[in-house]
Nucleic acid binder design. Structure first.
Lengths: 190, 190
DNA sequence: GATTTTTTGTGATGTATGTCAATTTTGAAA
DNA sequence: TTTCAAAATTGACATACATCACAAAAAATC
């Protein structure tokens, strides 16, 4: 476990510096969790007690529409954060599903604990501020890609941006992430 | 000007508390700017020196594709923040345009000053952290709406969510925000 | 290793939405 | 008030992509 916590510390220290004392405060506010492939991290209607940092593994966050079709909001793997941020932030029942595409391990942070360490250790507030800002920028780019690009060029773009991901994830899920039917994706060239 | 700064303070204090001393530090790091309708706040290829909090007015943030078509990333009005966050964060040339749909006034915050007040006044780091988080949640919902909803229901949804905006903005811009042609939007019922 | 399930590929067909063009309406400027 | 430019509407037609159906391939499970 010490090794895993060390990875988390590295993750923080990519953005901000922490003293050993600060780190000891921070790390004591996380819980460990491990799930097998196909198990759920978050479900619609259930409480969303945590934000999760992924130690290892791969998950998908998605919603299901009236017709039962799955729409993927995010893939998240090692070193990513994932949650139903909306439900988590407002402490409301989940609005999306998150489940494991591979056996996965997480460090879990409750809202209470997050606010606690953000106010006790200012560097942590800055860490999450900067992380959240990066996330915002990413989502803006995804929105632009949905507005400006054809399904095929979104696919090419993703192939370039996250080639490793494509290999770990069935194409029908990639299709669902891109907002295109799996049949159409299958007709694309590369 | 004191009145306008007071609005900004209120904006911060909706999320975090600030002592008078803290506020004096914070406010000294903002600059005032005023633009007329049709003037640019940010242009592609130009430096993006600031993030802007809108005191009054209305702007659109958009990119222009190879065919010269405009795609609206965001409308921003009173009490909103706007910038080319990506270019701003990395201090690179702008990748989008932001211009005024109405005469507008702004408080401007440089990257250097933002980082300064975030590290000098922890409450400010928390303010931006929480704001950024809210922004992230909003963008996630917009992505879901682009993935799951038809153009028509996205329009209805927007009518409900931001009725005031619709009245201040020509429909062809709404169309561009929704990712639909103005002709198609014009054929929708309500 | 055999069997079942999941994933992928491909054809035929339907549909939402885009594009082009012309007209009307609205609103801003003089 | 008149004039002019921008915005909105409407029709005809084009197209990217969805859907349905079925078959093949690959992967998971027993």
């Amino acid at each position: 476990m010490e090794e895993k916590l060390h990875l988390l510390r590295q993750h923080f220290e990519e953005i901000v510096s922490l003293t050993d004392d600060e780190w000891n405060i921070v790390k004591s506010h996380f819980e460990f969790k491990s799930l097998k492939k196909h198990q759920f991290l978050i479900q619609v209607g259930q409480p969303v007690a945590f934000e999760y940092w992924i130690i290892k593994g791969l998950v998908k966050a998605y919603s299901i529409d009236e017709k039962g079709k799955e729409h993927i909001l995010q893939f998240a793997m090692e070193d990513y954060w994932v949650s139903d941020h909306c439900a988590f932030q407002h402490q409301e029942p989940g609005t999306i599903f998150v489940d494991c595409l591979e056996d996965s391990e997480f460090f879990c942070l409750s809202l209470e604990n997050r606010e606690k360490i953000c106010f006790e250790v200012p560097a942590v507030a800055n860490f999450f501020r900067i992380k959240s800002n990066h996330g915002y920028i990413n989502l803006q780019q995804r929105i632009l890609s949905l507005l400006t690009m054809t399904a095929e060029s979104r696919y090419e773009y993703l192939l370039n941006k996250l080639p490793k991901l494509i290999q770990r994830v069935p194409k029908k899920l990639i299709a669902s992430y891109l907002g295109v039917s799996r049949e159409t994706l299958s007709r694309f060239s590369s």
